[in-house]
Write a protein that binds this DNA or RNA. Structure first.
Length: 586
RNA sequence: GCGCCUGUAGCUCAGUUGGAUAGAGUACCAGUUUCCGAAACUGGGGGUCACAGGUUCGAUUCCUGUCAGGCGCGCCA
């Protein structure tokens, strides 16, 4: 509809210029917007005001000439000039009714768009270190990423969803060592657990399974395990060197093969837990991409060679540095440490190069806002390797600050003191949790009150939307009980009977859905879809309370049933995009 | 100190690329059920859009500065 209006106005403008009623100036892009106030018609255009300055004319005068030059079309009943020079359009009743037929015809396909034009987009999200179960902080990224992906799919993009598994770094060594130490304690060894080790209960589960499969094969004397290990922090030492010493002893006491088995046990246990958790949260991935595979297949080394060849690496104090300051970063960054090991950053350079080489038109990374400082160096590395950095888009998700009532809740994977995503899901349900997460803009710092989410889950807006859907279903159950039925053809033939204000409002709402999907997808703002669904549900509930759908006037009844079927369809479509169910009863 | 994000009703937040009288939920107050589900609806009060300048027909929106809060500034991942 917007494009039809733009076409109409463009024709009129060129007519005016041809008639020399307007000077020959560069025309700005015509903007059409839906009016907030029904008194201003259905659509408004501000072109006359935008032209006022360049044309050196009074905006209302331009508007008057423009309106006179407009072609007559059947879908517009009224054109008015208002305020400082707005041109307001009112749609004809027939064109309003068309939306119901469109929704019913397209059903679950209604709202799908082709703006994406099949372009390949990769979306990487969650990518939490597999050192422990997902906690509620990861939930926001999971919900946001999966809805952004679904929106892009709905908008016609070819989407590949990916989870980057950090299965190669020191954190994983700490996990493996933590598991081993718990196992040793289980075997009867006595020692103090390192302050920097992973203390969560899930580590005990893994060590128990290790004991079950290996018996005491991996038992070593505590004295050997702690031999030559520097003091831990509580003893006045440093927690980092302490744990590193333990890791080294673990490797030498167990041997490479047994250590690797231990390492993989920890990794695989936690990763499979994460995958199951995400699946239950309605968050699907097309691929789990391993950091270790990048190293083992030489992709990291290749990337470093590429940077060396581009002459953007230099050696200092035994390490290799990337000159990221040449590309606007604050300081240069190490890619190869003085001990010869590549850094996490080196893996990430390789990973991003790999992504671009896989042929995605756009690569989207969804990161927690605490990683924002990382963006300049990654982009710098891409530019240095002659890649177009604009193909990488980084979307930041601000932290969800957890509260228990008025109190801030602590959250740390290391200490094991956190609410897991699984716990949250079991308490409030997948639907409520997802809706709650996506309800706010990603750049909004979110207050997540666990008390509210858990105890007052009935106040969660998701039920308001789902209830609207269930209510429509209920009407049809009632219809069947009375031995009546809805006839689509009969209903569509009688649509002109829908003259109530509530019905007009609802139809206007339905017509907005495709625009919402497109805007939410292109701007990566799923929360506008959530808000739209609440608005639609509100209009429906209001309508429900004001009028009956099953009435003696058959034509009217059939027309109304057609309208609420369309409403039900769009709620279902929208909730599906959000990964939230649309129940028939509640 | 530098960088990113934020500041809108008591609280939690919307406010589309600058538009007409700044909205919703919640909380509070008062109402609505012989009739399709009251998890709903109707009405009411509640605002210096953090503050100060600037840009223009027009600013909650864009620019600059100040204040306040969150996060980040490793040869960690």
């Amino acid at each position: 509809m917007k494009s039809k209006l733009i076409q109409l106005l463009n024709d009129a403008l060129s007519k005016l210029i041809a008639d020399k009623a307007l000077p020959e100036i560069e025309l700005p892009e015509i903007q059409i917007e839906r009016t907030k106030d029904k008194a201003h018609g259905d659509f408004a255009c501000n072109i006359a005001m935008m032209l006022a300055r360049p044309a050196k004319m009074n905006p209302r005068q331009i508007a008057t000439q423009l309106v006179d030059a407009l072609d007559d079309v059947d879908f517009i009943t009224k054109v008015e000039i208002a305020g400082p020079g707005f041109i307001n359009f009112t749609l004809s009743p027939d064109s309003m009714l068309q939306i119901i037929k469109d929704v019913l015809a397209a059903s679950d396909k209604f709202g799908l768009s082709k703006v994406g034009n099949g372009k390949k987009v990769q979306v990487e999200f969650v990518s939490a270190n597999p050192t422990g179960p997902l906690h509620v902080g990861h939930g926001r990224g999971a919900a946001y990423g999966s809805v952004v992906s679904s929106l892009l799919i709905a908008a016609g993009f070819d989407v590949h969803r990916e989870y980057y598994v950090n299965d190669a770094g020191r954190q994983m060594d700490i996990l493996a060592t933590s598991v081993w130490l718990r196992y040793l304690a289980d075997c009867g060894e006595e020692f103090v657990f390192p302050s920097n080790g992973y203390k969560g209960d899930y580590v005990l589960d893994i060590s128990a399974s290790l004991k079950e499969s290996k018996g005491t094969d991996l038992r070593r004397a505590a004295a050997d395990v702690f031999a030559n290990v520097p003091d831990d922090e509580p003893q006045g030492g440093d927690k980092e060197t302490h744990i590193d010493g333990l890791i080294n002893n673990a490797k030498s006491l167990l041997g490479e093969q047994a250590y690797r088995q231990l390492f993989d046990l920890g990794l695989n246990s936690i990763l499979s837990d994460i995958r199951a958790d995400l699946a239950d949260f309605g968050t699907e991935f097309d691929e789990f991409f391993s950091e270790r595979s990048l190293m083992e297949t030489g992709v990291v080394d290749d990337a470093i060679e590429k940077l060396k060849a581009s002459n953007v690496l230099y050696e200092k104090e035994g390490a290799w540095w990337f000159k990221s300051t040449d590309y606007g970063d604050e300081k240069d960054r190490v890619v190869v440490r003085d001990n010869g090991q590549t850094t996490y950053f080196a893996s990430d350079i390789a990973y991003h190069l790999n992504k671009l080489n896989r042929g995605f038109d756009t690569v989207i990374d969804i990161w927690g806002s605490d990683h924002h400082g990382y963006i300049p160096r990654v982009k710098a590395s891409l530019t240095a390797m002659n890649q177009d950095e604009n193909r990488l888009k980084v979307l930041l998700v601000q932290f969800a600050v957890l509260y228990r009532g008025k109190e801030k809740a602590a959250m740390s994977t290391r200490s094991g003191d956190f609410v897991t995503l699984r716990e949250l899901r079991e308490e409030v349900g997948k639907d409520a949790a997802r809706f709650f997460y996506v309800l706010r803009g990603a750049d909004q710092h979110m207050d997540f009150d666990l008390e509210l989410a858990k105890s007052q889950s009935n106040d969660n807006p998701v039920y308001y939307v789902q209830y609207a859907h269930a209510r429509v279903c209920s009407v049809f159950r009632q219809l069947a009980e009375r031995g009546l039925s809805w006839d689509k053809a009969q209903g569509e033939a009688a649509l002109s009977r829908l003259t109530e204000e509530h019905e007009q409002a609802l139809m206007g709402m339905l017509a907005r859905y495709p625009e919402i999907i497109e805007a939410a997808a292109l701007n990566h703002t799923p929360h506008i879809l959530a808000h739209y669904l609440m608005d639609l549900a509100r209009d429906f509930h209001t309508y429900y309370n004001a009028h009956h759908f099953i009435v003696d006037d058959i034509e009217l009844s059939q027309a109304r049933l057609s309208l609420i079927t369309a409403v039900k369809q769009i709620i279902e479509n929208g909730l599906t995009v959000m990964g939230v169910s649309a129940p028939e009863t509640m």
